[in-house]
Computed example of a mutant assay.
Amino acid sequence: MISRESEAYQAALGWLVDRIDYEKLATSGSRYRFTLDRMRDLIRRLDHGQHLAVDPNESSAGPPSSEQDSSTDVSASVKSATKSRDSANVQIVHLAGTKGKGSAATMVAALLQAAGYRVGLYTSPHLVHLEERFRVDGEIATPEEMIGLIDSMRPIVDAMAAAKIGGPSFFELTTAMAIEHFHRRRCDIWVLETGLGGRLDSTNVFQSHATAVTSIGLDHQNVLGDTVELIAAEKAGIFKRSTPAINGVPSGPVRNVITQIAEQVGALLSHLETDIQIEPNSDSDKRWGSSFRIRGLGDWMPAETNIDLKLEGTHQVHNAAIALALVDSLPEVTRKLRAEQRI
């Protein structure tokens, strides 16, 4: 068993952390320039291109994607075909928001695990150890798994660095590592939390099956914009055509922006407060935690069912409602829940 104190682990982690290049950051007072081209290239080189989405919202903000060497086309095609068969039924849940997205993502993963699925959860940042970002059924990646994931990235990083597109960033690499980890562990569902914003976040290259914006506030204004409306447009950039989208922002100008983005993309938008209603359970005798009822979901969960949380605060009720709505947005999952009454 390899420990975090081992030389192999420290060397692998050191190589990954060295990908954080502060010299590439924008100068004071200027806007950052993001592009998803490099992330798409990285995912294709990992042979996970079958999960990529075409994002019509992305502007041309960087170098064009490089082409893989023609000498590797045949072998890469064989690998991709094999991985496509292995992961054809993978579903992806994607969350953005100023606050609550980490809690809601964790709740989604817990609900789906309780329903009998193997679930990969990717969140950021970590509190103590980097591998906290990569969880399968609630368990963080082991040091051995981390070394294996990092080693699989090295030749790809070298190849990209030598090409016009350039080497991937630290967050692009950790996102790619999460996807590779979930593939290796044969996860049925991937739950992905955005790192920053949404539209141009590295997690937004994938074709999701359900999306959510939990809340909107002023954050990362030098990157996302200096008004809540601009920030809302960036975070709603994770919406995909014909894909369920849950909005947790209350009525007002910010919700109007989110609605407009959903209409432009063709996402299937539902709102907390109007389409999905939350009612506090005043009859609860809980001394700690929260209790509520939720309406507007499918018949897999009776409307009068009490939902009890071991978390305190109306904000966690809000997050739990988003999590339940996201689960409700996955037809295959709800059919299973209806048949088995697992949750």
Rank of each mutant, 00 (worst) to 15 (best):
I276G: 06
L268V: 00
T243V: 15
T214E: 07
P280W: 04
S208H: 07
A267M: 08
R287Y: 10
L224S: 07
Q221M: 13
E172R: 14
R199V: 02
V205Q: 04
T175C: 03
V257D: 01
I189E: 01
L268S: 11
M301W: 10
D188F: 05
A233W: 13
E304T: 06
D201E: 12
T227V: 05
H209C: 12
N247Q: 01
D299S: 15
S208Q: 04
Q277E: 11
S282G: 00
L269P: 04
A262Q: 04
S284E: 08
N204V: 07
S202W: 00
G289I: 04
T243N: 08
S202T: 14
K235P: 05
K235F: 07
G195Y: 10
I246T: 11
G197F: 04
P280Q: 01
G195R: 09
L200I: 01
H183M: 07
R293N: 15
T305R: 13
H271C: 14
Q264C: 09
R185P: 01
R287H: 08
F292P: 04
L173T: 12
H181P: 02
T259R: 14
S270T: 14
D299Q: 08
T174Y: 05
G248L: 11
T175R: 01
F239H: 09
I276R: 06
N306Y: 07
E304P: 00
Q207H: 15
S291I: 02
S282Q: 12
R255P: 03
G266T: 12
A232L: 08
A245H: 12
L230Y: 00
I261N: 02
D219A: 14
R186Q: 15
T214V: 15
R185N: 04
S242Y: 14
L272Q: 06
T274H: 14
C187I: 03
Q207F: 08
V228A: 10
L230K: 15
F206T: 13
F206P: 00
T214D: 01
E304Y: 03
D308V: 08
E304I: 02
G248C: 13
A210C: 07
R241V: 00
F292I: 07
A176N: 03
G195L: 09
D219T: 05
G266K: 12
T194L: 06
E193Y: 05
A232W: 06
K235M: 08
E229N: 10
S270M: 12
K286L: 14
R185I: 01
F292Y: 09
V254E: 09
R295N: 09
V265E: 02
V213D: 03
P302C: 05
I276N: 06
V223L: 08
I189D: 05
G266P: 13
A178T: 04
G298E: 00
R184G: 05
V254N: 09
P302L: 10
S215Y: 08
T174R: 01
V213P: 02
D219E: 15
D201R: 13
A245G: 10
V257L: 02
